[in-house]
Design a protein around this nucleic acid. Structure first.
Lengths: 193, 193
DNA sequence: TTCATTACTTACCGATCAGTATGTTATAAT
DNA sequence: ATTATAACATACTGATCGGTAAGTAATGAA
């Protein structure tokens, strides 16, 4: 009774996510989006609503992806210290490899939109809170295993590491001297001692 | 022989700086600028060149202002630990006081423009390097006075504190729970122990 | 007072913005 | 095969973008 959709919704949403991630909300125009997604504007509007709704859907997809990737990364090593070190260093390696440094879509949105749109202020805050809780869990695992001191304030240290992670991700956009970053990570991770 | 300028160049540049600071490069339109600055578009173009040049001039003014404010802030207390604590807490207090959280103009630019414009990548990197050097000087003052250990790697700790400062400034845009932030700052500053 | 020069205001430029009306094509139930 | 329905492509909308042409007003040197 109906004509069937000719594009893969998940695929084109993924493309939109990467475009918003790289260029931000304002700088990514609908013409950019149609060109990248390979579909026309009416198709975007019928499938995702307007630009802001498409952006929100893309960001939600990103935060889910990012959250599970972070969880996987922090679970890879039995040592909590090692896990965090690998996590930080993976971010440096990842960003250094690309020409255009996209950083983190959620952090980019926190800077561009959170102060002007309550919806994105809340959405980004909730994701940061999720990451902080994940970090806290990981630290508590280290305390239980005896790797970390029982006197450590897991919640506060988790929040500090999250702040460091945000700062690192942002600073990498200006292509700082790699050796400076590497030493700074080592120092930051002494918070786990 | 000539008609004299009717507006104060420093004053209108200051207004433009605050507008770019709050809204970013893309979102601050020339109509927004003329309305805020109180002059017409041809006056802007004759005095400052095009939008990008005006933005660059405004950003340079900001970084100079910001650098000397940071230097003054870090010099206020004889204790280096106290100086950094006051610096971090002043930022939280400042941002918490405003409705729209502007954050730091240089950090905003690092996120929005540095990956796409080499000029702003360099400009923002140089400012961050300046701040890192200022932090390093301050830490070395603490080592000389005996407040900090001689074994401390001043450069690496300075870089870590800078990263934490960036992360804090960005995170504040999502209005996190104040108590979390306060505890995280305390933990971060143990890097000076 | 005249005149060259520069700052000003107004009105406009083509390009692009987000979003939509309209007509065509494909599908599946009848 | 017919037909209702939804997805498609094309072309358009008014608004706004950054930037400028053109004409007027003010200034100071001669």
């Amino acid at each position: 009774m109906v004509r069937s959709r000719e594009f893969d919704e998940h695929k084109v949403l993924d493309t939109a996510m990467h475009l918003f991630w790289e260029k931000g909300y304002e700088a990514a125009s609908l013409n950019d989006l149609t060109a990248a997604m390979g579909i026309q504007k009416p198709s975007i509007y019928s499938a995702f609503g307007n630009k802001e709704e498409l952006f929100e859907t893309a960001l939600r997809k990103y935060t889910q992806m990012h959250a599970s990737a972070a969880r996987a990364q922090l679970s890879r090593s039995a040592s909590v210290k090692e896990a965090f070190r690998e996590y930080f260093e993976q971010i440096v390696a990842q960003e250094s490899g690309t020409e255009r440094r996209r950083g983190c879509f959620c952090i980019n949105t926190m800077v561009e939109l959170a102060p002007h749109h309550a919806k994105f202020e809340i959405l980004t805050r909730e994701h940061q809170n999720y990451l902080a809780a994940l970090f806290e869990e990981t630290i508590k695992r280290g305390i239980r295993s005896g790797e970390l001191s029982e006197e450590m304030n897991a919640q506060a240290v988790a929040q500090s590491l999250l702040i460091a992670l945000i700062g690192l991700t942002v600073l990498l956009k200006s292509r700082p001297e790699p050796s400076l970053i590497s030493n700074a990570i080592t120092v930051t991770l002494t918070l786990l001692h």
